[in-house]
Computed example of a mutant assay.
Amino acid sequence: MKKEKVVLAFSGGLDTSFCAKYLTEDCGYELYTAIANTGGFSKEELKSIEERAYKLGATEHASLDITQEYYDKSIKYMIFGNVLRNGTYPISVSSERIFQAIAIINYAKKIGADYVAHGSTGAGNDQVRFDLTFQILAPEIKILTPTRDMTLTREYEIDYLKKHGYEADFKKMEYSINKGLWGTSIGGKETLKSNQTLPESAYPCQMIAKGEETLTIDFKEGEIAAVNGEKYDDKVAAIQAIEKITEKYAIGRDMHIGDTIIGIKGRVGFEAAAPMVIINAHKMLEKHTLTKWQQYWKDQIGTWYGMFLHEAQYLDPVMRDMEAFLQSSQQNVTGRVIIDLKPYRYILVGVESDFDLMKSDFGEYGEVNKAWTADDVKGFTKILGNQMKIYHSVLNKNKK
């Protein structure tokens, strides 16, 4: 009898290693494993994960590189929208999951899989992101989640793998680290408390820079065009170049406290040197090149866009509407931003742009006006205050 095919989203960690062995040994499925790389894995790491998959019984393993797609369909718009969840977190790892889920389910459809599986537990956001994406894009393919459904302990999974002849170093690391193109998340015992922070040693990138340096980022219609004067057509490479420069200053670190999709509060540390510098540099350029109301509505749209992306709503058509708005808003966001890098911090020095709205013939703030007279301002102020004057006049009459 022909075995049914299952595709497992495989990272090589304990949960997905257990799932791989369980799905082949106990369930008798023909196992296909796949990892969707969004820029967080080296060639050596991907090779190691592939070897692990075959040792666990995979018939075939696929490494799906979706880094460019992740930039084109997510990071670009997060930059346009200056997306920082709760004003703090550039939704580094959580924004990747939807695109990983899309890649996995497309691979499952390509090989004609009967099932798709993931190793998420029942306590986090990722289970929703994977399930929802799978259900929408391939409702005919059944979802298997052994770790969640069996409510397994770490000890049970390790013991199971040992009994089935699979040995690996599953010693629990003191810190859980997830690295990607758009930043790194860090979880540990401190993030489970409300009154503690991560120690210096928990961060993958240490402060090794000596002295200070100036970084320039050129934007063209909202996208990175050059770094320190070097032009980049490849936007992924541009982000990586900025990361290489900024990470040695140990900047972009913080603690994110947020509301999860499943309704509980969550806390995670992160370091995102390049994303934080890029977003804040981009926002500064926008302050000079966009009107007041463009900035206002971009803030609203950017906040909603980030929230929907975080909460697995990427496939809702309203996201395409928001992306169209964000794209349109970038027509004049072109220019250079100058940043001073210092240990553990950075300073946005200023901008140079042909679209700088401060460089106009109308006047200089606090200095001189060139487009109106003193009487014009007196009349404007009188009309501007009409509604407030009427309100207070009525209020005073009714107090008598």
Rank of each mutant, 00 (worst) to 15 (best):
T303Y: 13
K382S: 11
K248R: 13
E352V: 04
Y344I: 02
A374S: 01
A281M: 12
E230V: 12
K389S: 04
T214V: 15
V337P: 00
I208E: 15
F219S: 00
L132R: 13
A138Q: 07
T184L: 02
T197H: 07
K400A: 14
S201P: 01
V333Q: 10
I224L: 08
A273W: 03
P343G: 02
A312Q: 10
T334V: 13
F80K: 01
F362R: 12
E51S: 10
G302Q: 11
Y296R: 06
A273C: 04
Q313I: 03
A272H: 05
D376V: 07
S74Y: 10
K21Q: 12
F130V: 04
G187T: 07
G81T: 07
N125T: 13
D356C: 03
A34S: 12
D169C: 02
S95W: 13
G263V: 09
G229V: 10
I347V: 08
N228P: 04
V116K: 11
R85N: 13
G229S: 10
G124T: 15
S120A: 07
I208T: 15
I245E: 08
E323H: 02
A281R: 08
I262K: 14
Q300H: 10
C27L: 15
Y89V: 03
S63P: 00
G379S: 05
A34D: 11
F99E: 01
I104H: 02
